[in-house]
Nucleic acid binder design. Structure first.
Lengths: 226, 226, 226, 226
DNA sequence: AATGAATGAGAGTTCATTCAT
DNA sequence: GATGAATGAACTCTCATTCAT
C-alpha cells in the first residue's frame, strides 16, 4: 500500500478501522468459538445427533446468537468441515507439496495423516465419523496415485481402486485408533501405511525409502474464521 | 407319541396349541414385516434419521403395534442388523465354508460379498451406512487372514492391518458402487478384490487362481424371525 | 339339608350340579383372583395410578379376560371396595353387634378397627388411601355416637363433629401406622382410641371399662365372589 | 455508588441490567401465573388426574413454555405445595406467632385455619385432597401440643396422638365443608375446633377463653415467585 | 450483536379397548 | 370363557425458530 495514502486523515481512518476491526474481530471470535466447540460436539455425537442446545451450552452463547451465525446445525456442520479442510491444508498439504516424487508424496501424506490422527483425537473422531459420511473427496491423493501408476511405481488395477483402498483403509485405521487408544504407542500407524503401499504395488525398496524420511512437525494452526 | 396319550382331552389340548401357534405365527409375521421394511428404510435414510412414523407408514401397522415389538428405533436397528447377519451367514458363509484353503476362502468370500453388494442394493446400502457404524466384526476374515499369514501366502505387517485394509476397502467399494451404479456392469468389483489381495501380499498366480473359480449362486434365503 | 333328598338320583344331579358349579366356580374364582390381586395393587399404587396391565400381570390372566369381568379400573376399584366392605362387616360388625351399650360398642369397634389395621397391611393401606377418598360413610358409628350423646355418656357439640373426629383421627392413625411400622408393637393403637374417646367426652371410668374387655379374634373371612 | 463510575459506559450497563431485570420479571410472572392456575386445577381434579394440557389451556401459555418452568405435573404440584406453604406461613403463622400461651396459640391457629377453609374454597380443596396426600407435616402444632402437655393444660396420651387427632379431624372437617357448603354459615367450624380441644383434654374454661378472642383478618398475600 | 422467553409442530410413548381365534 | 395381537386416541416431551428488548 502506498504509505502516502495511509497517512491521509489518519485520525478518522484509524477510528473507522478500529471500530470495523473490533466489530469484525468480535464477530469472528464468536463464530470461531462456535466452530471450535462444534468440532468437539460433532466428534463426540456424530453429525446428526447434536441439537442447537448442545452448541449454545458448550459455548455459553445465547440461543439467538447462534442464529446470527448459522441457521441450522447442518450449516454449522458444513462450516466446521470447511474449516477443517483449511486446517488440513495448512497442516498436511503444505508440508508435502514441496515433494516432487508423487509416490513419496503420497506416502509422506499418509504418514502425516495417521500421525495427526494419533495426536488429535477430536480431529480423528470428526474425520472418521463425520467427514467421510459426507463423502468428502480429496483430489491430491487421486492425482498422486495416477502419477504413480503412470511412472510404474504403483501397479494397481486402476487409480480408483487405489484411491478406494487408500481412503477406506485410512478410515478403518482411524476407527481402530479410536477404539484401541493403546495402539498409538505402537508402530501400528507405520504398518497400516506400509500395508496400503503394498496394496498399491510398490516395491519393498520404495517403502523403505518412504519410511527413511523424518516426519515434519505437524503445525497446530491458529485460524481466523471469515 | 403314544396314541393313547394323544387321545386324552384332545379338545382342550388342540385348542390351546392352536391358539398359541396361531398367535406365534401372527407375531412372527408381523415382526418379520417390520424388520424387512426396516431394512429398506434404514438403507435409504441411514441409521439415525428414521422416525417411528417411517416404519408404521411403510408397513401399514398401527403406532401401538410397533411398540408391541420394539421399544424404539435403535432396538429395531439392532434387530435388523442381527437378522441381516443371520442372512449373511446363510448366504455367504455357508457357501465358502467348504473351502479348505484359507487364502482361497478369503478371496472367494470377498468375491461373493461384492457380488451381493452389486445384486442387492438395499443390502449394500444398509451394510455400508449402518452396519459398519456399529463396528460389526467379522471373525471369519480375521481367522483366514491369520491362517494365510501363517502359511506364507499372505505377507502383511499384521493380521489386524490386513483386516483393516480388507474391511475398509470393501466398505469404500460399496460406497462407490452406490454412488456410481454404472460400475456394476464393469469389472470394478473384481479389480477391487484384486487390489485387496495384492495388499495382503499374494502372488499374482494365487490371484489368478482365485479368479479362475466360478462364483456360486447367492441364495436368497427366506427366514423366520424368532 | 335332608340327607334323603340329597340321595335322590345322585348321578344326574351330581353331573348337572357339577357342571354348573364348576362353571360358576371358575367364573367366581377368576373374579376373586382379580379382586384379591386388585386389593394389593390399589393398596400399593393408590386408586388412580394402576393400569389394566398391572392387574393382568399380577393375576396372570389375559388382557381380554379382564374385560370379561370389569370394563375399567374404576369398576374394579368399586368392586374391590364392596368386597372389602363385606369383609369388614364379617370381620368387625358381626363381632360388636352383640354389644348393647352404644358407647361400649363404638369403643370396641374402634379397637377392632385399629387392630385390623395393625394386622393387615394391605387392608390398612387400601382403606387409608383409597376408601376414604371415595368418601365412604359408615352409618354404624354415627348411630352409636348419636345414642351415646342421647344417653349423656358422650358430650360433644354434635354427632357430626364426633363422627368427623372419629373418622378423621382413625384415618390419620392408619397413615401413621403405615409410615411408622414400629408403632404396631407399642400401645399407640390403644392410645389413639383413648384420645378419640376423650374427644367424645367420655369419663375416665368409661374409658377404663372399654379397655378392660378382651378383644375378639378378628376372623380372616374367606369370601366367595358373586 | 461513585457517580463517576456510574457514568462509565452507562448505556451498556443499563441495557444489560434492563434486559436481565425485564427477563427475570417476565419469568417470575409466567411462573406465578402457572402456579396460581395450578392451584385451581389441582383443587378441582386432585393431584394425579391433571394433564399438562389442563395447565396450558387455563393459563393460555404454549406447550413448550410449560416445560421451560416445570418438567412434569409432579414438579408443578410440588411447587404449588411449596408456594402454598409459604402462603400459609404468611397468612396464619404470622398471625399467631405473637401469642405466647401455646394452648391459646394452638386454638387460635385452628380457628384461623378453618376460617381460611371457609373463605377460600380452592385453598380448602387443595389442602384437603392434595396436600395431606403428600404427607405434609406441620411442626408448629406439634410443638404447641407438646408445650401444652408439659404445662398440664393438655392431657392426651401423647403429643403424637394429639397431633393425629388435630390434623385428622381438621382434614375431615375440610372434606365436610366442601361437601356441605351450607355449613359455612353455621357454627360448625367453631364446634369442630371445640371438639378437638376437648379431645386434647382442655378445661371448659380454657375453651371459652380461646373462643373469646376475636379472629384476626386473614391477609390475602400477594407473593412473588422465586 | 446479544439475549432468552415464548412458541408450536412433530416425535415419542402409554394404555384402554376391540375382536378374531 | 380365555386369549393376546392389533389398534389409535391421548398424552408426554423435545427442539428449531421467532422476536421483543
Amino acid at each position: 500500500m502506498n504509505p502516502k495514502e495511509s497517512a491521509v486523515s489518519p485520525g478518522k481512518k484509524a477510528t473507522v478501522n478500529h471500530r470495523t476491526v473490533v466489530g469484525k474481530n468480535r464477530r469472528s471470535r464468536t463464530k470461531a468459538r462456535i466452530i471450535e466447540a462444534a468440532l468437539q460436539v460433532f466428534a463426540e455425537k456424530g453429525p446428526d445427533a447434536p441439537v442447537i442446545d448442545d452448541f449454545i451450552k458448550i459455548t455459553g452463547i445465547a440461543r439467538g446468537t447462534f442464529y446470527n451465525y448459522f441457521s441450522n446445525t447442518a450449516e454449522l456442520l458444513s462450516a466446521t468441515s470447511t474449516w477443517l479442510a483449511d486446517d488440513l491444508a495448512d497442516a498436511i498439504e503444505s508440508s508435502i507439496q514441496v515433494i516432487d516424487d508423487p509416490v513419496l508424496r503420497h506416502g509422506m501424506g499418509m504418514r502425516l495423516w495417521v500421525e495427526k490422527a494419533k495426536a488429535d483425537k477430536a480431529w480423528c473422531s470428526f474425520v472418521a465419523s463425520v467427514w467421510f459420511q459426507g463423502g468428502f473427496a480429496l483430489d491430491g491423493p487421486l492425482r498422486d496415485i495416477r502419477l504413480g501408476i503412470k511412472s510404474g511405481e504403483f501397479s494397481c488395477p486402476s487409480a480408483e481402486c487405489g484411491w478406494d483402498m487408500t481412503m477406506g483403509t485410512m478410515r478403518q485405521a482411524m476407527i481402530r485408533l479410536l477404539k484401541e487408544p493403546g495402539l498409538a504407542k505402537t508402530d501400528y500407524t507405520d504398518r497400516i501405511v506400509e500395508t496400503i503401499l503394498q496394496g498399491l504395488g510398490t516395491s519393498e525398496e520404495k517403502r523403505e525409502e518412504i519410511f527413511s524420511y523424518p516426519l515434519a512437525e505437524i503445525p497446530r494452526p491458529t485460524k481466523t474464521i471469515a
